[in-house]
Design a protein around this nucleic acid. Structure first.
Lengths: 123, 123
DNA sequence: ATAGGTGCAAAGTCTTTGCGCTTAA
DNA sequence: TTAAGCGCAAAGACTTTGCACCTAT
């Protein structure tokens, strides 16, 4: 994989962000200092970076896809009130994967876990 | 909520299906015996039924949204080889929710859990 | 009677892609 | 040098919605 200036910018934006940004957010953020950047490039790179395992896509019901720089399996908590997304440790997720692999007699490669509710500020 | 003929058909289609159908699949299936049915109606009803807690939406990476008649929290396993979706018991999911509620000091209302891998036939 | 639902088709949102130019390796 | 990437704009996939008509309650 080549590392163009744009790809570096996009990768860094995801890795440095703590807000699990959407393609649009990344585009808007980077556009300020890189006015020629195109949205298509952002999508192409997010997709490419994900294929190469450098970032991870997170699907949240009723929101556009988000991206996350933490690649090891872990869960997300989404606050229904304020929309905040919080990373959750992966210990429980790994346990879950093991149980399920046993239950279906198959191989569990990874998991997407999203919990919905109210965060400590909004509850 | 009123129960039109269409709503009944759509609800039954989701409840009876074992394949976690998409809106398109439901539409194609019901269209055979109900040629005047429109895709917009299917989307409207799936959305409405979900709001009322009768069915549940399942988001799977790189697939259109699917719907599921089992409303209690539970996980899904998706086979990357054959695309099959298998329901997983909810015991582990409930445990996970409890741990996370504690970890974030918030309220966890429900969860979407999707595991990816190879099923017993494809592994 | 009437709030809510329907079919249809147009519009909206998010994402992908074809093309001719540019650039990292 | 050249395979890969870029910007742009058009197209695509999926979903929502406005409107005039219809129906469950």
């Amino acid at each position: 994989m080549k590392f163009s200036k744009q790809r570096q910018l996009i990768l860094n934006a995801v890795l440095q962000s703590e807000s699990h940004p959407t393609a649009e957010i990344i585009y808007d953020t980077l556009k300020k200092d890189n006015p020629s950047l195109s949205l298509g490039t952002v999508y192409r790179n997010l997709s490419q970076l994900e294929s190469n395992g450098l970032i991870r896509k997170v699907k949240i019901i009723d929101h556009p896809d988000r991206y996350d720089g933490i690649v090891s399996d872990h869960a997300h908590f989404v606050c229904r009130e304020c929309g905040k997304v919080i990373d959750i440790g992966n210990l429980e997720v790994i346990k879950l994967q093991e149980k399920v692999a046993e239950e279906i007699d198959g191989i569990v490669e990874d998991a997407t876990v999203i919990l919905y509710g109210r965060c400590n500020q909004c509850k």
